[in-house]
Design a protein around this nucleic acid. Structure first.
Lengths: 134, 134
DNA sequence: CTGAATCCATATCGATACTG
DNA sequence: CAGTATCGATATGGATTCAG
């Protein structure tokens, strides 16, 4: 980690310990907080793998999700500029969702986390069992 | 994204659309859900930047966090094998926290997400304003 | 089919007070 | 100093119902 963009450097530069310029920290934190929830990440991964999908198709591909959370998550992703929503004026209604360039770039950024999770899954579960035995 | 580990491939291989082997999906999802919360990510970043830190030191370095959440997050990270907790038998008490190898590797995996957030912060805020004006 | 709206249970988090 | 315990407000998420 230890991000080395100019923004983050300025946030840590001044007096090192005391959160010198909280504004950027706060914004980044907020953004990550929004972006890093369970469903957003799953949808990001799904849409990157499968390209354009319609509502019901997504719902079927993500077993645990409720229709409410699906709508909510897609809306927020649309608002954040991650996905593009296309409404086809047909009956029955048909709405397609696909990642924008911004969404794709975020998906790529998260790729490392997915790989890490898959690779270290056993490791984490083992650590948990060891911890719980005390 | 589109993780290409053997685990994930097997999860998507069989019948492509219908979540063929939900077990691995569920575990990865769960793991990411735990790992990707706001405070965990911030602590991960902080400990990677600063190395070993003690409790109060961390609390001061993370302005928004409550003492409750700090303890809770550190405990969960310890349980998941991300951080190592060292209690020094002195008075007043002194407890040091540092990332394990597992924690470091996760921090590195998240580095890309941090950089993305910093780089695309303006982009996202602009997208939100555009969306909200409708 | 694609939602929006409502109800309700639970989880989360911050504030506060107390302890070894 | 480094926690634990508790309370209350708020957020979150699922189930259900209704609508264009």
């Amino acid at each position: 980690m230890s991000a080395d963009s100019t923004a983050r450097q300025s946030a840590h530069a001044a007096s090192e310990g005391e959160t010198p310029d909280p504004r950027i920290e706060a914004l980044v934190t907020d953004l990550i907080g929004r972006v890093a929830d369970k469903w957003t990440m799953i949808l990001l991964d799904l849409l990157e793998e499968r390209g354009e999908m319609r509502f019901t198709q997504i719902a079927r591909a993500v077993p645990g999700i409720s229709q409410k959370m699906l709508t909510q998550t897609l809306r927020r992703m649309e608002r954040d500029g991650m996905v593009c929503r296309t409404v086809h004026a047909v009956v029955p209604p048909r709405v397609d969702y696909r990642l924008t360039g911004l969404g794709q770039s975020l998906g790529e950024a998260f790729c490392g986390v997915w790989l890490w999770a898959e690779r270290n899954l056993d490791h984490v579960e083992q650590a948990r069992r060891a911890f719980d035995e005390r």
